[in-house]
Simulated scan of single mutants.
Amino acid sequence: MPKISQRGQIMPPSPIRKLVPFAEAAKKRGTKVYHLNIGQPDIETPAPILEAVRKSDFKILEYSHSAGNESYRRKLTGYYSKFGITVDHTEIIVTTGGSEAIIFGFMACLDPGDEVIVPEPFYANYNGFAVEAEVNIVPVTSTIDTGFALPPIEDFEKMITPKTKAILICNPNNPTGYLYSRAEMEVLKALCLKHNLFLFSDEAYREFSYDGENISALHIAGLEQHVVVFDTISKRYSACGARIGAVVTHNRGLLDAVMKFAQARLSPPSFAQIAAEAAVDLPDNYFDSIKAEYQGRRDLLVARLNAIPGVFCPNPGGAFYAMARLPIDDADKFCQWLLESFAHEQQTVMLSPATGFYATPGLGRQEVRLAYVLNLEDIAKAMDCLAKALEVYPGRQ
């Protein structure tokens, strides 16, 4: 029998989805499962986005430009300008989701064996993208006791080697919800300039910044040739299935390299670009109610978590995730136990063990990530379940 590649063997499975079989089994037993494990918003996709696809009228579904439809890219420049970001449409390459943007960035900026430093905990799929590009993730640990603030500059300096080519952040952060300050971004600027590094900035949750200003990496003067922003419409417009993202950078040499990868995959999806272009035309106040809804969910979730004895949850400044420390022996065991062995009034809650968001072995064993993508009533019921579960969990500490 032919042997699969080493890359295929080491490609990590999703730690976010690994408990799905246990959730499915719980549902078959008649248990209602509150899904706080995955960032799939329950907010309806705006009607104009869907209508634009329904009303599209053409006789041939052609390839678009490899960089994406020019009309969409030109509209995106207007979108970014609302955030004080000045880019030309030729500095944007549309991708098949934010995932492809990150993969293109890795492959265009890093050679096999190169290293990218990432504050942990981090979005687990960065590991998979690194395997695909044959590069190495080097973690620098942030801690729940500081609310997952940017680790000290000295911690980054210790990790820099001749193989280090980039630093990657997610702002606001998935999984922690942390919102990086301008001062922290300036620290990263100094580090990137000192060591001639790229700064990769995953800005999927830009609109969902609650407790301060969102500072894009593209706001940082003097770092123009180092910054590569990865973007996506998935969370912004509750359009995860559209699979439209973007690479945004002022670095023309990098754009040329990314363009060759974009040409190799021909073009991003046409119907999804129609949807994305319609999304840019939504009224400026569209996000007011959405942001307020998520902030209300955050406030309820964090208050309920911190009211449970032994639980600690810092207040996330953005996105729609929170990390909590629980009085348990092992998060992986606990999250499986919730689905396999526990029910409160025929209900339980599905969480993501934090171990899957750390690269350093042993970290996150008492932490979980919660996505507040359910309505207030469901969040309250989910917290009722969690509180009851922690009272009876055999591995409580």
Rank of each mutant, 00 (worst) to 15 (best):
P175R: 10
S181M: 09
A133N: 08
L193G: 01
L168Q: 04
H195E: 01
V138M: 07
I144Q: 08
P162Y: 11
M185G: 03
Y180R: 09
F129M: 12
F208D: 02
E203L: 12
L197I: 03
Y180S: 06
A149D: 13
I169S: 01
K194Y: 06
F156C: 02
C192E: 00
T164H: 04
F208V: 00
L150M: 09
L150F: 01
N127A: 15
C170V: 15
T164R: 04
L150W: 00
T143V: 12
V131D: 01
V187G: 04
P172S: 14
E134Q: 14
S142A: 15
N196M: 02
G128E: 14
S142K: 05
K163C: 10
I169R: 00
V140H: 00
I167A: 02
Y178I: 07
A149L: 07
G147I: 01
N173P: 09
E186Y: 06
M185P: 00
G128K: 11
G147P: 05
E203G: 00
C170K: 13
S181Y: 05
I153R: 15
C192P: 01
K163R: 15
T143I: 13
F129K: 11
R206P: 02
R206K: 12
A190F: 08
A183N: 15
A149F: 07
P152D: 13
R206D: 12
K189W: 05
D145A: 10
L193R: 08
I167T: 05
L150P: 01
C170F: 08
Y126D: 00
G177A: 07
P172V: 08
L199S: 02
S142V: 03
Y180E: 06
F156S: 01
P151W: 10
P152F: 13
S142R: 12
G128W: 11
V140N: 02
V187N: 10
E132Q: 15
N196A: 07
F129N: 10
C192I: 00
I144E: 03
V138Q: 07
E157W: 03
D202A: 12
I137L: 14
P151E: 04
G177N: 10
F148V: 05
T141F: 02
M185I: 05
S201R: 04
V187W: 08
T161I: 11
M159I: 11
Y205T: 08
